[in-house]
């Protein structure tokens, strides 16, 4: 277990329906993601991994247990407080529909900061710095449909982590991308985590899960197993590292 996790699920569970139609989507999920950590979730469709991500992001309330973001329990929050936490502490990156089509890359990244109450000019400076950091300064004034899929996803990651935000929830962020572009997105996510962000990632691609520090396996609504990054290598890659 880690000290001061950015995200913590305590025995979180979710049931839908009742009586005959009751379905347990998730039960007894315990999971922490610390600053600097990238955690990937693996499971087949229907395993409960999207439910897990929804609970983690405060998009859905757990039926049992609790979810803590930056040490704050979501259960005790009013709708308003929850909305504020979602906006201020959590960044979301989905497979598509990430960016506002009518805003440029810089405006998209600046948007959460403006909603935080930061002055527009200052928010733009921060957005440009964020673009610079991910090597995409040149797309600042382009609209999403003028960018490649990989550029859009990288901009979405920059937006997710703008300002004081350090938790990013990524659901199939490489889903619509080719292998090489997808790898570029994963390299960026890894770099942002190495720089202190915490990320919970759902991806069906084993190759992309492998960028994580830990891979959590979920099946029939329960976390059944996990890997750690310190497992011994099967091959001697001494000369590579």
């Amino acid at each position: 277990m880690t000290a001061n996790p950015v995200l913590e699920l305590r025995n979180a569970g979710k049931v839908y329906g009742e009586g005959e139609t009751l379905v347990t989507a998730l039960h007894g999920a315990a999971l922490t993601v610390a600053a600097g950590e990238l955690v990937a979730v693996r499971g087949s469709s229907g395993s409960g991994k999207s439910t897990l991500l929804h609970l983690a992001g405060g998009l859905d309330a757990p039926s049992t247990g609790d979810v803590l973001v930056e040490g704050q329990a979501l259960s005790g929050m009013s709708r308003k407080e929850l909305a504020r936490l979602r906006r201020r502490s959590i960044g979301y990156v989905f497979q598509d529909l990430n960016l506002v089509p009518s805003l440029t890359a810089a405006e998209n990244i600046a948007l959460p900061r403006e909603l935080d109450g930061t002055h527009a000019a200052e928010a733009r400076i921060e957005a440009l710095a964020a673009l610079e950091e991910i090597g995409l300064r040149e797309v600042a004034d382009r609209f999403p449909d003028e960018m490649s899929g990989g550029q859009q996803q990288r901009v979405a990651i920059a937006r997710a982590l703008i300002g004081p935000r350090r938790l990013v929830l990524a659901d199939e962020p490489t889903g619509a991308l080719d292998s090489e572009t997808g790898e570029g997105v994963m390299r960026l996510l890894r770099a942002r985590c190495d720089a202190g962000a915490a990320c919970l990632l759902v991806t069906h691609e084993p190759r992309h899960s492998a960028w994580a520090d830990r891979v959590v396996f979920i099946s029939d609504g329960a976390i059944i197993d996990e890997t750690t990054a310190d497992a011994p290598a099967v091959l001697d890659l001494g000369a590579l590292t």
Binding site: P206, R207, A212, D225, T227, V234, L237, L240
Partner: peptide, 22 residues
């Protein structure tokens, strides 16, 4: 199956870490 998945996934992680340095 799960024991093997965990093993294979760990291998994939260490290969990916190695790749990140190349």
């Amino acid at each position: 199956v799960q024991a093997q998945r965990r093993q294979a996934m760990s291998s994939l992680q260490s290969l990916t870490r190695a790749k990140a340095t190349v």
